[in-house]
């Protein structure tokens, strides 16, 4: 009887524990977290773009590394659509309100970036220098176009 009681309470504790774990596993992202995360991802994109541009300009060797940067860029950009949750326009964020006021226009701009970076990753894989340069130009155009409309102008 005693043993059964212990087993039952052990089971109860285990269930409680699993429940508590599942609560922890679903992150409670604050607006500040969302903004910080967005900045971190954008910084990695910036790094991949800066590095890729040096490959495109012929300033460094190693096509296999261009492939890594181009792929990293495409992977990061594929996450853009989830980086702008409502309310994440906290103080210090460079995101302009138009992002949430014109969601369709914003989604179209992101779709363009996704397509451009995917194409750039494919071009990098192919090793075709002209295709790489042309695709990178489109990547630049999509970054610039998006920042022009949706980001606070930088000094």
């Amino acid at each position: 009887m005693q043993a059964a009681k212990i087993r039952a309470s052990g089971m109860f504790i285990a269930i409680l524990g699993a429940f508590a774990y599942s609560v922890v596993a679903i992150a409670e992202t604050t607006p500040q977290d969302a903004s910080d995360y967005r900045k971190s991802v954008m910084t990695t994109l910036k790094g991949h773009i800066g590095a890729s541009s040096m490959h495109v300009r012929g300033l460094v060797d190693g096509q296999e590394f261009l492939v890594k940067h181009a792929t990293g860029l495409a992977n990061g950009v594929s996450e853009l659509e989830r980086l702008f949750p409502a309310g994440s326009n906290v103080e210090g964020s460079d995101a302009l309100p138009i992002i949430w006021e014109q969601p369709e226009q914003f989604a179209a701009a992101i779709e363009k970036a996704v397509a451009a970076t995917r194409k750039f990753a494919e071009a990098a894989e192919s090793g075709d220098k002209e295709a790489i340069a042309a695709a990178f130009r489109d990547v630049g155009g999509s970054c610039r176009g998006c920042h022009d409309t949706f980001r606070v102008p930088q000094d």
Binding site: L45, G50, S52, R57, F136, R144, P153, Q154
Partner: peptide
């Protein structure tokens, strides 16, 4: 020089950012 030329071509700053603003 390449950084300047590239910025005037694509609008990319040397660190990979795209600044936007009236220069765009």
């Amino acid at each position: 020089l390449s950084d300047i030329e590239y910025f005037l071509d694509l609008g990319m700053l040397p660190d990979g950012d795209f600044a936007g603003g009236s220069m765009s």
